[in-house]
Nucleic acid binder design. Structure first.
Length: 403
DNA sequence: CCAGATGATTCCTC
DNA sequence: GAGGAATCATCTGG
């Protein structure tokens, strides 16, 4: 307000000439109020006329050509009343709360953005380039077992794709940051420029910058979201690849089958046995469990289909036992198994159903014998016949049957 | 290409 | 939590 008093009566003011050239009749002059507090003096009248002129010019500024407007703008900027008017405008703005528009306090950081940031960091897209996510994914794959040698190829493929995503992400982020900075600078310059003709406080400029950042932040969120999606898709593909079923090696299947058929009465390996089998087959314990689960159910569903296989493994085991070479994969294939087997199965004279020792007997027995005779012959020297006795032997059912 | 084999997964029960 | 059953998805051999 002090400026208003200083601004009175200065015909030599550089702006006056310009103003006078566009001088309009002061029909809007006095409305009875005295906003400048100058009523009752010559200077007061002059000031009011000046204010009226200025307001009139402001009101008509949009109707004029750009050159004309620029000229008037310059004139206004240089007018001796400008500081006083400006100060009044500032005061009114403060009082009416206009300056508080959009003055919400700083929002806390967007939780979604935080989540995305964390995810990108965990996946090795953001942050230092160390391939943390890839390493994590690979380690997860390795720990789940069953990683074939060519998984390293998948790994490198994953890494290269991840690095592509990373590079695109950083390029786009850089572009975004650059655009944001440029736009912010531009707006700040505009506001600073405008602050010469209208009341724009530094705080308002800060707020405007915050608004711009918020708007740009949504773009950044989209970028991060897209990147996350890309990484998730890549990761799921990689994990799918990891899930790819690969048949066990022949040797592994052999080991598992040997155990299965030599423990047919109780094909449920203990934890220790599973561990041992897993070690021998180069697979995981859970894969051993899966294999036995599948085998049991499939065997039970179609025993006849597995008869051949059962015969083969029984023979193998028998030969091994005959040579006094107990299979290392069937550490318990001694007489105790025989007893369990006798309790668990209907015996027939087919070798598949027999204890290894008895299979040896079968080889030397003749097919002309009756079933009873064969059983008797086959189980010569062992307790199987006695164990089998409570169960009826069905000659046509030359299969093992789980109780 | 297709049917069957097979390893893995999911859901359910005990 | 282990195992049974059903199912999926992939592999394999003809």
């Amino acid at each position: 307000m002090e400026q208003k008093l200083n601004a009175k009566g200065n015909p030599g003011h550089p702006g006056m000439h310009a103003l006078n050239t566009v001088h309009q009749p002061s029909q809007h002059r006095s409305d009875g109020g005295d906003p400048a507090g100058l009523e009752g003096s010559e200077n007061g009248h002059e000031s009011r006329r000046d204010i009226g002129d200025i307001l009139q010019q402001i009101m008509t500024i949009t109707d004029q050509s750009l050159d004309e407007a620029q000229a008037k703008k310059h004139a206004l900027n240089c007018h001796r009343m400008k500081p006083a008017l400006f100060s009044v405008l500032c005061e009114i703005k403060e009082k009416t709360g206009l300056s508080m528009r959009n003055a919400q306090e700083e929002e806390p950081q967007d939780p979604q953005l935080v989540r995305l940031d964390n995810m990108l960091l965990a996946e090795g897209v953001a942050g230092p380039e160390k391939g943390g996510g890839a390493a994590a994914a690979v380690s997860a794959a390795t720990s789940s077992g069953g990683m074939s040698p060519d998984s390293s190829l998948e790994h490198s493929d994953y890494k290269s794709k991840l690095s592509q995503i990373r590079s695109i992400y950083h390029t786009e982020l850089e572009k975004y940051e650059q655009a944001c900075t440029e736009f912010t600078t531009h707006v700040m310059n505009l506001l600073r420029e405008q602050s010469r003709t209208r009341p724009v406080t530094p705080r308002e400029i800060e707020r405007m910058v915050a608004i711009i950042h918020r708007k740009f932040s949504s773009i950044q969120t989209q970028l991060k979201q897209s990147t996350c999606e890309a990484v998730m898709i890549l990761r799921s593909r990689f994990l799918d690849a990891r899930r790819k079923r690969r048949n066990f090696s022949k040797q592994a299947t052999e080991v598992l089958n040997e155990y299965f058929y030599s423990h047919l009465s109780n094909p449920y390996p203990s934890e220790e046995a599973k561990e041992e089998l897993a070690k021998q087959c180069g697979i995981t314990i859970s894969q051993v469990s899966n294999w036995f689960g599948n085998k049991r159910i499939r065997y039970k569903k179609n025993i006849s289909k597995f008869q051949e296989e059962a015969n083969l493994y029984a023979m193998k085991t028998a030969l091994g036992a005959r040579q006094g070479d107990d299979s290392p994969h069937t550490p318990n294939s001694t007489g105790t198994i025989c007893k369990r087997r006798c309790c668990g199965f209907h015996f027939s004279v087919t070798q598949s159903s027999l204890h290894p020792v008895c299979v040896g007997n079968l080889i030397s027995c003749t097919s002309e014998l009756t079933v009873e005779a064969q059983v008797s012959e086959v189980h010569k020297g062992c307790s199987h016949t006695r164990a089998v006795a409570p169960r009826p032997i069905a000659p046509e059912a030359c299969i093992l049957e789980l109780v």
